[in-house]
């Protein structure tokens, strides 16, 4: 994928497809030198038997092709840079994917444009809520789309170009405020 923000967007799209109403997306720069992200949804979840096979690219629920690459790509990217991916799921409850990446490893992809990923996620699935948090070395930042929805009432439409532009600019500003200084993400 080239940047972890695209993997995050892709995994979040799985949550949308699983009819999640709320997707929690956490990104953290931890003290041990890892970048960790977690995507947890309240969608339909997976059976244990499917969960066991889900790292296999030739396992998928899709009908257009017999290949599903989203989870395997994250699994591979994490392992290549000394990290790991964990996935838990319960039918009817939701799915949680956690992936860690050792940042000083040469194979660690850049985090990339997370603000763009979240804005595009909301624009494409405007009825889904996103609780996004970024724990950086200079502080924490939390964005809850439910607060925006409450503020705007019935006028809230995340696919409206001007609201999408605001979400993107606001997230970028806040991420820049808390992320580790001097590091291109």
């Amino acid at each position: 994928m080239g940047e972890l923000a695209l993997n995050i967007l892709d995994l979040a799209q799985n949550a949308v497809a699983a009819q999640a109403t709320l997707i929690r997306i956490e990104v953290a720069e931890n003290e041990e030198g890892f970048l960790v992200f977690r995507i947890a949804d309240n969608g339909r979840g997976m059976e244990q038997s499917f969960l066991e096979k889900v790292r296999d690219p030739f396992v998928t629920t899709r009908t257009t092709r017999k290949v599903g690459m989203g989870i395997p790509l994250v699994d591979m990217a994490a392992q290549q840079c000394g990290g790991r991916m964990d996935i838990t799921s319960r039918p009817g409850k939701g799915t949680e994917v956690t992936a860690s990446f050792r940042r000083d490893n040469i194979d660690c992809p850049p985090l990339g444009d997370v603000a763009g990923s979240i804005a595009v996620l909301l624009a494409g699935a405007p009825a889904t809520d996103v609780l996004f948090s970024y724990k950086g070395s200079r502080g924490d930042f939390v964005f809850d789309s439910r607060n925006i929805r409450e503020e705007l009432g019935e006028a809230c439409d995340f696919s409206h170009p001007e609201l999408a532009a605001w979400v993107r600019a606001y997230l970028q500003q806040e991420i820049d405020r808390v992320k580790e200084e001097g590091r291109a993400i």
Partner: peptide, 20 residues
């Protein structure tokens, strides 16, 4: 198209360009 294939090919940038 926002499947894995679309995203890997640049769908996020295309959607952002459309919104802009």
């Amino acid at each position: 198209g926002m499947g894995t294939c679309g995203i890997a090919a640049g769908a996020r940038e295309v959607m952002a360009a459309v919104l802009d």
